[in-house]
Amino acid sequence: MADLVLQVNHVDVVYDDNAGFFRKKPGFHAVKDVSFSIEQGEIMGLVGESGCGKSTLSKAILGMQPYTGEILHYTKRPQMVFQDPYGSLNPAKTVGWIVEEPLRAYGKYDARERKRRVADMLDRVGLGSQYANRRPRELSGGQRQRVGIAVALIQRPRFIIADEPVSALDVTIQAQILELLLELHRDLSLSYLFISHDLNVIYQICDRVMVMKSGSIIESGSVEEVFDHPKEDYTKKLLAAF
C-alpha cells in the first residue's frame, strides 16, 4: 500500500443547536460515520449536493470543526483552496502581503527569502511578480483563485483540500484553473481532496471519487468504476443529471 496522507475513521459531526438556555434541541447530524483514506499523490473527489455535509467534513479535517472519531494526518499543515475567491483574500491587503503572510506565520525565513519565495510562487501559479502590489479587487475571479492557490501552496504542504475551487468561475477560466491544479499536482506531487457538486469537474481531475448524501458516504471507488457502473440509485440519478 502506498503512503497515506490522510486517514479518516468513523467521523461524526453533530451541530449543537444553541436555541436557548433551557431548550436543548437534538443537534443536526451533519456527518455520519465517515471513513476513508487518501494516498500520496492521489486526487480524491468528494461529490454531493449542497448541504450534504461536504464542507463540514472538510472543516473537521482541517480542525475547524469539532468532531468525534479519528482523523489522522500523515503530512504537516494541510491547506485549503476556498470556493469564493472574493471572500478568501483580505480586501485590505496587497497580493504580495497576502501570499507572504503564511510564511510570516511560519516564521522560518527572513524578509528577503520570503519575498523571493512569494515572487517564485506568483510565477508558478501563472500570475507573475508584478501582481504583488495589486489588491484583490483589481483582479478577475480567475486571477484571485490563482492567488488563493498561491496562498495555499506557499507553506509547501503535501495535501490540499480544495472546496469547490472552480464553482464560482466561468467555464473557460474553470478549465485554466483545473489545468493549473493538475500541473501543480504533477510537479509538487500533491494530494488533493477535491470537493465539488459538479460531476464534470470531478471526472476531469480525480482518480477516485466518493459520493456523499445527507452526511454519509454512500458510494466510493475509482472514477471509471463509479461513473460507468454506479451501484446506488442516488449516484445513478446524479449521473443522469450530468
Binding site: 482541517l62 475547524m64 485549503m80
Partner: peptide, 17 residues
C-alpha cells in the same frame, strides 16, 4: 466568518494578529 479569516487561522496566524 469570512474565508480570509478562516484561511489565516489555517496558516497558523496568531489570534491577536
Amino acid at each position: 466568518e469570512l474565508d480570509y479569516v478562516r484561511n489565516a487561522k489555517l496558516m497558523g496566524v496568531g489570534t491577536p494578529r
